[in-house]
């Protein structure tokens, strides 16, 4: 428990500082009110709107832990959203639509996983293929337009409420918690970390690296499918051109802000998810503060850089060093004074 808190400290501090900063520009940021059974307020918006990136970040954390990367998740989201919208408008119920969408996500993951683990293509290149082709596939399904639907059950996934909180929030929290449990209550987490750090040595020790890698990319596909369902449900339509566009980058950023190394190995899903919350807080904060759109990207970039620099191990060591020196000096001065 103590270890977990220590691991998450930088992210939590960054988030808290950010919230404080936003509150300066928009004092009501933390205010939450109850409006016919649903909580409303900027914080609730953050919790809801971070759903796609948080979901992706869960899967991306695992992929990155294996020393991989998945650039195709945005396109996969578009495919899965399109599949679900198509199924629902063709008259199938929500369960079937969800199953089809998740199936599509798993299939995308299987494809990526096989390219990486069996064919041996570099993850960056392997997933680039689906990144470019995927949106085309989604457009084929939607025939290039926004495929709208009216199914209230599906729409509920995006804009419904359960116990006061938006559905997307519940979805990402569940996925993050369950995945964390799956990783840490079984040996999966350890084995994934092992192949990420040293695949050769792990394989030699009997770790089934090929199957694990494929499974990890499929888990990523699963998360992307859920994210695709959420954004599609949110606007009651599958927008093949824009659904999930560039979200792969936000997901990777979330993982990096979460202090996970792009070189694989040790990972923390909780930290990545906090990373997603940080990104969304920045976006919503900038908007609420009312800065002109032109500055959004710049402000976001600056904040992200600051957060990453503060987290970097180099900075940590330096900081440690200077603190030691200071303590030293104080000690010595104290001694002399005595």
């Amino acid at each position: 428990m103590h270890g977990t808190l220590k691991r998450l400290a930088p992210q939590l501090i960054a988030l808290a500082t950010l919230i404080a900063l936003v509150s300066v520009f928009y004092p009501g940021f933390l205010s939450v009110s109850l409006n016919d059974g649903r909580l409303v307020g900027p914080v609730v918006d953050v919790l809801k709107r971070s759903a796609p990136v948080a979901l992706l970040a869960v899967g991306m954390t695992l992929v990155i832990a294996t020393r991989g990367i998945d650039l195709s998740v945005g396109a996969t989201m578009a495919i899965c959203g399109a599949v679900a919208a198509y199924a629902v408008s063709a008259g199938y119920g929500l369960p079937v639509a969800m199953l089809l969408a998740i199936g599509a996500g798993l299939l995308a993951g299987l494809w990526n996983g096989c390219l990486v683990a069996i064919v041996g293509v570099q993850p960056f290149v392997a997933t680039l293929i689906l990144m470019t082709a995927g949106r085309g596939i989604a457009q084929l399904i939607t025939e290039g337009r926004i495929l709208t639907f009216t199914d209230p059950a599906f729409a509920f996934l995006g804009s419904g409420n359960l116990l006061g909180l938006p559905m997307p929030t519940w979805i990402w929290i569940c996925v993050a918690v369950l995945t964390t449990l799956l990783m840490r209550r079984t040996a999966l987490g350890l084995l994934i970390e092992a192949i990420g750090i040293n695949r050769r040595a792990s394989a030699l020790a009997g770790v089934n690296a090929v199957v694990l890698l494929i499974a990890v990319y499929m888990a990523m596909g699963f998360c992307a499918a859920l994210a695709g369902l959420v954004v599609t449900a949110d606007i009651r339509g599958a927008d093949a051109n824009n659904a999930g566009l560039w979200l792969e980058l936000d997901a990777i950023l979330a993982v990096v802000i979460g202090g996970n190394s792009l070189l694989g190995g040790r990972f923390s899903i909780a930290a990545s998810v906090i990373g997603a919350l940080i990104i969304q807080t920045i976006s919503i904060g900038i908007r609420l503060a009312g800065f002109p759109s032109e500055y959004n990207l710049l402000i976001k970039a600056v904040l992200v850089v600051v957060i990453l620099v503060l987290q970097s191990p180099r900075f940590g060591t330096e900081w440690h060093y200077w603190r030691q020196q200071l303590q030293f000096k104080r000690l010595r001065e104290g001694k002399i004074a005595k």
Partner: peptide
């Protein structure tokens, strides 16, 4: 597996 602990390295094969 350099980034894992001694404990984890020792049990890795067994666990696999």
């Amino acid at each position: 597996v350099a980034d894992l602990s001694i404990r984890e390295n020792i049990i890795l094969g067994l666990q696999a």
